[in-house]
Amino acid sequence: MNAFYEQHRDEIEAILAKYPPEHKRSAMLPLLYLVQREFGGHIPPEGMRIVAEILDVSVTEVDGVVGFYTLFHDRPGGRYRIQVCTDLPCALRGAEKFLHDLEDALGIKAGETTPDGLISLEEVMCIAACDKAPVFQVQTPEGLTYHENMDLEKALALVESWRQAQASTPAAEE
């Protein structure tokens, strides 16, 4: 098995243990999350090879799966991906204006990343928090958090806290 497997043996074995051994392909999505975390928020070709090897499937198949799901990224983005919901119920409660204000304040458009690589701004479909609009989720390599009943001030305070955290960690891995 590959070096990645050796390095993360316990975690990988715990994932595989959730499925009958003859159906280990079911571990595809959990393994992709693990790889995405370890590669700092995206899945490069190397990461797809690792998963393909563990699951005995072709890299093409893994690539197809990565491309299908919106929470997997095949290229790097910001450390924090702010994913603002502008779907119908949220749009009825001011989400589109919120996104525009945030775009202006951050100086980037939805789909773009700040020059320091800290933040990507993205527009997403409903995230099951429609009664608490405006809402966004923040996807990081490690996981995901919800931020509900937002306004520009609260959002910018959050961004500021990330900037501070970034400044105080000596040379982040990437």
Partner: peptide, 11 residues
């Protein structure tokens, strides 16, 4: 999976 826009009960 609860993904229908407007649905937030299962959560």
């Amino acid at each position: 999976d609860e993904s229908e826009p407007g649905t937030f009960k299962d959560r």
